[in-house]
């Protein structure tokens, strides 16, 4: 018992902090286009004080939670942005600075909306998608998270799941 207490305390602390941070980043109009993906997301996770000291079980738990929190925050933010653009053309939340073809966009809200359906048949794949797309985790980290929740999850499994998840989602969100 004594060993789990500081851990849970730490996780909660970091969890609260993360929620605050991510919310803060996106609270209104902070721009982050000069950031590399890993820099942005990992910076936020790994600079949280004390994370280095938790064991893997706890870390996996935390990373999993983080992805869920991140998803919630991003969706809230995306909805707000949509709402703010009332009247005009709907904002697309997906364009990338380096490519202009709208067919190559991934709409965050559409992915979110399709997640429930995906989860019914493919819960593990949905989790991989959540961890990667919303949580920004690497394949290795996703593998740790899945292992901690009792899945067989080699790197290869995670990669295959991700390939399948992308295909499924791409199909689900593709414009008519």
């Amino acid at each position: 018992m004594a060993a789990t207490k500081p851990l849970s305390r730490l996780t909660d602390e970091i969890y609260g902090e993360l929620r605050r941070l991510a919310g803060a980043v996106l609270s209104s109009r902070a721009g982050f286009d000069s950031f590399q993906p890993t820099e942005l997301v990992h910076e936020r996770y790994f600079r949280l004080p004390g994370l280095q000291t938790i064991d893997w079980q706890g870390r996996a738990h935390f990373l999993n939670l983080s992805a869920q929190v991140m998803r919630r925050i991003l969706i809230d933010c995306a909805r707000k942005l949509h709402a703010a653009k009332r009247g005009g053309t709907p904002v697309t939340l997906s364009f990338h600075a380096t490519f202009n073809d709208p067919a190559l966009e991934v709409d965050v809200l559409a992915v979110h909306d399709a997640m429930d359906r995906f989860c019914v048949d493919y819960p593990r794949h949905a989790q991989v998608l959540e961890l990667r797309f919303f949580g920004g985790l690497t394949t290795e980290e996703i593998s740790e998270v899945l292992k901690a929740s009792g899945h067989e999850a080699s790197i290869r499994t995670v990669e295959r799941d991700w390939t399948f998840a992308k295909a499924w989602m791409q199909n689900a969100i593709a414009p008519n």
């Binding site: 109009r29 703010a84 190559l104 965050v108």
Partner: peptide, 28 residues
């Protein structure tokens, strides 16, 4: 078919937070 589209779509290789952050920065 979708898998081929997805693999060619760089939109999948960046996390959602970047997309949202960019859209939000654009409203400045």
């Amino acid at each position: 078919a979708s898998s081929a589209d997805a693999e060619n779509n760089p939109g999948w290789s960046e996390p959602a937070i970047l997309k949202v952050a960019r859209a939000s920065a654009d409203a400045a």
